[in-house]
C-alpha cells in the first residue's frame, strides 16, 4: 500500500509539468485539507450561523433577526403581538378610567421620589428577588401598564416578557415610559403614604 503511494508520489514528482500529476500530488499531500486557519475560522462561523438559524426557526421562543415593531429588541416572536405598546395619551385615558394597574419597573429610589398615581413598584433590576412578594400584587385578571424611565429603557419590556412567561395576558408597555408621562402632564404622586417621610417635598 505504502509502496503504491510512493510510486504515485514519485510519478507525480517526475512529471511536474503534467497537470494530472500535479493534481495527484496535491491530493496525496493532503493539500485539500490544508486550509488556512483563518478560513477554517470562517467555516466555524458559518456552522454557527447555520445552527443559530435552524434552532431559532424551530424554537417557539425564537426571536426575529432584527428589531420588532417599535424598535424593540429581544422580543420572542410569540410575544410580539401579546406585548403591545401605548402612548401617553392612551395611558392617561386608562388611568382616568381606572381600568388599569400601572406597574413601575424603575428602581425603588426613583419610584419613591415620584411615580404615576396608583402605580405598584416592581423594580426590574431586582426581579428575581422581588417576584415572590410582588406576584400577589399583580392580579392576572387586570390590565397591567408597565413603564420605566424613557427612551432606551428596556426594563418595562423585559418585565412584560417575564409576566407573559408567568401566564399573564393583559400586559401593555407605556412607550417612552416616565419621560413621556411627565411631558404630557400625567398626574404623579410624590412619596406615597407609608414611605419614610424624611425626604418629603423633594423632587
Amino acid at each position: 500500500m505504502s509502496g503504491s503511494l510512493q510510486d504515485k508520489q514519485t510519478s507525480s514528482q517526475t512529471c511536474s509539468c503534467c497537470p494530472t500529476g500535479q493534481g495527484l500530488k496535491w491530493l496525496l499531500r493532503g493539500a485539500a485539507l490544508r486550509v488556512p486557519h483563518t478560513l477554517r475560522a470562517a467555516c466555524l462561523l458559518l456552522v454557527a450561523l447555520a445552527g443559530a438559524a435552524v434552532y431559532n426557526a424551530a424554537n417557539p421562543m425564537g426571536i426575529p433577526w432584527g428589531p420588532s415593531p417599535g424598535g424593540r429588541v429581544g422580543i420572542p416572536r410569540a410575544f410580539e403581538s401579546r406585548l403591545p405598546q401605548i402612548d401617553a395619551a392612551q395611558a392617561l385615558v386608562l388611568q382616568e378610567a381606572g381600568d388599569a394597574l400601572f406597574v413601575d419597573s424603575r428602581d425603588e429610589e426613583d419610584y419613591e421620589r415620584d411615580h404615576i398615581g396608583g402605580a405598584v413598584n416592581a423594580p426590574m433590576r431586582k426581579w428575581v428577588e422581588i417576584w415572590p412578594d410582588i406576584e400577589s400584587e399583580l392580579p392576572k385578571n387586570r390590565l397591567l401598564v408597565l413603564y420605566c424611565y424613557g427612551a432606551h429603557c428596556g426594563l418595562s419590556t423585559r418585565q412584560g416578557k417575564e409576566l407573559l412567561r408567568q401566564g399573564y395576558d393583559n400586559v401593555i408597555v407605556l412607550d417612552y415610559g416616565w419621560a413621556t408621562w411627565t411631558e404630557h402632564g400625567g398626574p404623579t404622586v410624590q412619596h406615597p403614604d407609608g414611605h419614610p417621610g424624611g425626604e418629603e417635598g423633594e423632587d
Partner: peptide
C-alpha cells in the same frame, strides 16, 4: 436568546438593528 438580547442591549455597544442577530 431573548434574554441574551436584553443583556447585549444593556452593554449599549451595538445599533438596535444588529442586537437580535448578534444575540
Amino acid at each position: 436568546a431573548d434574554r441574551f438580547a436584553d443583556v447585549v442591549h444593556d452593554y449599549d455597544m451595538l445599533a438596535l438593528v444588529f442586537i437580535n442577530a448578534f444575540a
